[in-house]
Measured scan of single mutants.
Amino acid sequence: MAAGGDHGSPDSYRSPLASRYASPEMCFVFSDRYKFRTWRQLWLWLAEAEQTLGLPITDEQIQEMKSNLENIDFKMAAEEEKRLRHDVMAHVHTFGHCCPKAAGIIHLGATSCYVGDNTDLIILRNALDLLLPKLARVISRLADFAKERASLPTLGFTHFQPAQLTTVGKRCCLWIQDLCMDLQNLKRVRDDLRFRGVKGTTGTQASFLQLFEGDDHKVEQLDKMVTEKAGFKRAFIITGQTYTRKVDIEVLSVLASLGASVHKICTDIRLLANLKEMEEPFEKQQIGSSAMPYKRNPMRSERCCSLARHLMTLVMDPLQTASVQWFERTLDDSANRRICLAEAFLTADTILNTLQNISEGLVVYPKVIERRIRQELPFMATENIIMAMVKAGGSRQDCHEKIRVLSQQAASVVKQEGGDNDLIERIQVDAYFSPIHSQLDHLLDPSSFTGRASQQVQRFLEEEVYPLLKPYESVMKVKAELCL
Rank of each mutant, 00 (worst) to 15 (best):
A2Y: 15
A2E: 08
D6T: 13
H7G: 05
D11G: 09
Y13N: 10
S15A: 15
R20E: 00
Y21R: 00
Y21C: 02
A22K: 08
S23Y: 15
S23E: 11
F28I: 06
V29I: 11
K35H: 13
L42S: 04
W43C: 00
W43G: 00
W45Y: 13
L46P: 01
A49T: 06
E50M: 06
Q51R: 08
Q51N: 06
Q51Y: 07
G54W: 03
P56Y: 10
D59F: 09
D59E: 07
E60G: 10
Q61L: 07
Q63W: 09
K66N: 15
L69K: 09
I72K: 03
F74N: 14
A77W: 06
E79G: 12
E80S: 13
K82M: 10
L84S: 06
R85D: 00
V88Q: 04
V92T: 12
T94F: 06
T94C: 11
T94R: 08
A103Y: 04
I106E: 00
I106A: 07
H107V: 00
L108F: 11
L108T: 10
G109S: 03
S112I: 00
G116C: 10
D117E: 05
N118H: 06
D120M: 06
D120S: 06
A127I: 02
L128G: 13
L130P: 05
L131N: 11
K134G: 12
K134Q: 15
L135K: 07
V138C: 08
R141K: 15
A143N: 08
A143F: 10
D144M: 15
H159R: 01
H159L: 02
F160G: 07
Q164R: 01
K170W: 02
R171V: 00
L174A: 12
W175D: 02
Q177H: 12
L179F: 12
L179E: 01
C180A: 12
N185H: 09
N185I: 06
K187L: 07
R190E: 07
D191T: 12
D192P: 03
F195H: 03
K199R: 04
T201A: 03
G214F: 12
D215C: 08
D216T: 11
D216E: 09
Q221M: 15
L222R: 00
L222M: 07
D223M: 06
K224I: 08
M225W: 06
T227N: 09
G231Q: 09
K233V: 10
R234M: 14
I238G: 06
I238W: 01
Y243G: 12
R245L: 01
V247C: 15
E250I: 15
L252H: 09
S253D: 05
V254I: 11
L255Y: 04
C266W: 03
C266Y: 03
C266I: 02
N274L: 05
N274E: 08
P281K: 07
Q285E: 07
S290D: 01
K295N: 04
N297L: 03
N297C: 00
N297I: 01
P298M: 07
E302D: 02
C304G: 13
S306V: 02
L307I: 08
L307V: 15
A308H: 03
R309S: 06
L311F: 02
M312T: 11
T313W: 10
L314D: 04
V315D: 04
V315S: 09
V315G: 07
M316Y: 05
P318K: 01
L319R: 00
L319E: 01
L319M: 10
Q320T: 11
T321W: 03
W326S: 04
W326P: 00
R338P: 01
I339C: 13
C340M: 08
L341P: 06
T347N: 14
T350Q: 12
I351T: 14
I351K: 02
L352N: 06
N353L: 13
Q356K: 03
Q356M: 12
E360M: 06
G361F: 07
V363L: 13
V364D: 05
Y365E: 08
Y365M: 08
P366Q: 11
K367A: 14
I369P: 04
I373M: 11
Q375Y: 05
E376K: 05
E376S: 01
E376D: 09
L377K: 01
L377V: 05
P378N: 01
F379V: 02
F379M: 12
A381V: 11
N384P: 12
I385H: 04
M387S: 14
V390R: 01
A392I: 08
G393L: 05
G394D: 06
G394E: 10
Q397K: 06
Q397A: 08
D398N: 13
E401Q: 13
K402A: 07
K402R: 14
R404C: 11
V405Q: 08
Q408M: 04
Q408V: 08
A410M: 06
D420N: 06
N421D: 05
N421G: 05
D422S: 14
E425T: 11
I427W: 05
I427F: 13
Q428W: 12
V429Y: 06
S434C: 09
H437E: 07
L440M: 08
L440E: 02
H442E: 12
H442W: 12
S447T: 12
F449A: 04
T450I: 11
G451R: 03
G451M: 01
S454T: 14
Q456K: 04
V457R: 03
Q458H: 12
E462G: 09
E464W: 07
V465P: 00
L468E: 12
L468G: 08
E473D: 15
E473M: 13
S474N: 11
K477A: 11
V478A: 14
A480D: 12
E481V: 11
L482A: 13
L482D: 10
L484W: 14
